[in-house]
Design a protein around this nucleic acid. Structure first.
Lengths: 139, 139
DNA sequence: GTCATAATGGGAACGATTCCGAATAAGACG
DNA sequence: CGTCTTATTCGGAATCGTTCCCATTATGAC
């Protein structure tokens, strides 16, 4: 998996369910859990199974179409990111409503690599997430 | 909970189990899961229950004695950090053996705060973890 | 249309973590 | 040193998110 570039797509069939999951994610700029997406789709009358939601969410991640954030409680949340060509970035996430803003920090990237190298670590990657309360939720 | 300072300790009874969990963590400079600590203690002949291990691990975190890292697969791992007075820091963690090095990045802190402020976010905190392969595991 | 097979869905299986309630033991007091 | 209060313990049941399994369905190629 780590050997395959994120942009390297595999042939996939177009299904209603796959489209529905993508639409559900696209409708919000917030990180949402699989269970959440599933509930929303069912509430909308979509005919889809929980397994399928998980499957598509994972596919999006594999294809570089979506980002994942693991909440402190362990739940995984997903959000479509710009597009596959978008460069590496991080997120500023509202702790309350889940709204997320994509951010970049070139300095952080180089810092991380430097620190790792100084300690003899190789094959480095990192996670950087900033949590806070968005203006709307602060009220 | 969030209102109580990390250094504000509550009266606690001293028990063998509590000490055992702390020793087990202190014995290694790696992040270890509750299940892992539990298995080690039992293997050592300690009389302790899994619930108790989880309870003490959580207490350490609440008291600011330990740091937690949520692995990508969702499992929580714990490690004693310097001491409660140690300032905010992050970790460089070996993806293979779990060995962790405490690191600091003042620049990252200020960057995070600035970015958050620019987007109208308040009550900010962040997580920064760098994963890689330590020199020993690279071989 | 026909066919091979990718995709689906729902229920079982799983693994980490939490909960519960009765049994145990730490610490205070006399 | 006893007694008593209650924090702590422990193991098994319960929870919860996620994955697995596999018979059924439906996409896309010919």
């Amino acid at each position: 998996m780590s050997l395959m570039a994120a942009t390297q797509q595999v042939k996939r069939r177009a299904t209603n369910q796959g489209a529905a999951v993508k639409e559900a994610l696209a409708a919000e700029d917030t990180f949402r859990s699989a269970q959440d997406v599933y509930a929303t789709l069912r509430a909308n009358g979509e005919k889809i199974g929980l397994s399928t939601v998980y499957r598509h969410l994972q596919i999006f991640v594999d294809d570089g179409l979506a980002d994942v954030i693991h909440k402190p409680d362990g739940e995984s949340t997903y959000r479509l990111c710009g597009d596959a060509s978008t460069t590496h970035h991080h997120h500023l996430v509202c702790r309350s409503c889940g709204k997320a803003v994509e951010i970049e920090g070139p300095a952080v990237e180089t810092w991380a690599d430097k620190v790792a190298a100084q300690n003899g670590f190789t094959d480095v990657n990192h996670t950087v997430e900033i949590f806070g309360l968005c203006a709307a939720c602060a009220a």
